[in-house]
Design a binder for these strands. Sequence first.
DNA 1: CGGCATCCTGTGCGATACTG
DNA 2: CAGTATCGCACAGGATGCCG
Lengths: 134, 134
Amino acid sequence: MATRTVAQRREQQRREYDAFMATCPARKLLDRISDKWVSLVLTALTGGPQRYSDLSRRIAGVSQKMLTQTLRTMERDGLLTRTVTAAVPVRVDYRLTALGESLLPLMAAIKAWAETHIEAVERAQAAYDEASAQ
Amino acid sequence: MATRTVAQRREQQRREYDAFMATCPARKLLDRISDKWVSLVLTALTGGPQRYSDLSRRIAGVSQKMLTQTLRTMERDGLLTRTVTAAVPVRVDYRLTALGESLLPLMAAIKAWAETHIEAVERAQAAYDEASAQ
DNA sequence: CGGCATCCTGTGCGATACTG
DNA sequence: CAGTATCGCACAGGATGCCG
C-alpha cells in the first residue's frame, strides 16, 4: 500500500493549492483583471458610461456572449454599474464605479511596464527561437 | 447575397481584434503575467535561484507539465535563465534575470491593490448574490 | 533528477437561434 | 436593443509512461 502515497501526495498538494488560491487576494485579483476582456471593457468605459451596443462596437472581436459574461462578472465584483432605462427599445448603460476606476492606475502601470520592456522581451524571444532552431 | 455581411462583419472584427492583440504590448504582457503560474514562479524565485524540484515542491498543486511549460515560456521571454549542471544526477537551476526582477514591483502593486480593495469586491459580490437570489 | 511524448477529459468559448 | 438558451468543438491541462 506504500505506492498509493504518490497519488495521495498529488491530491494533498492540490488541496493545499486550492486553499491557497481561495485565500490569496492577489491571485484572485489577477484571475479577474487578466481576463481576456476585462481590461478592454475597463479602457472602453474610462471616458464615461457606454451603452451595451456601443461597447460591442468599440471592443472589436468580442462575441456577445463574452461581452455579457464579462459585464456581469464585473458588475458582481462591484467594478461597474448596470443601469436599465425602461423604454422602447430598452436602453442599458454601463458605468465604472469608484472601485472600478481605482483599477485604472494599475492598468496604466502595467501598460507602462509593457511599453518600456516589450522590446527586451521580443529580443529575448527572437534570440531564444534562433538558438533552438539550430 | 446581402445577408453574408453578417458573417463577414464578424470575420472583419475578429481580424481587427487579432491585429490589435498583435500590436498592443500591454495586452501581450497581461496575457503573459496573468498566466496561472507565472506569478507564482516569479514569487518563488524572488529569494534567489531554485532547482526544478524545489520549485515543484514550493508551488503546491502545479503539475510537472505546467511547471515545465511555464518555465520554458518565461525563459523564452527573457524573464529567467535556465542553467544545466552536467552531473549525475543532472542539476538544473532557474534564476530571475534583471528583466524578470523588474516585474516584481508590478506584482507588488497588484498585490497592494488586491489587499486594499479585496474586501470591497467581496462585499459587492455578497450584495449582488443576495439581490439576485430573491 | 529533470524532463518529453502521448493519451484523454473538462470546459471555455464561438456560432446560432429565440425572447421581452 | 439587450440580452438568454442551446449546441458543438477546439484546446488547455492532468495523468501516465518512458528517457538521457
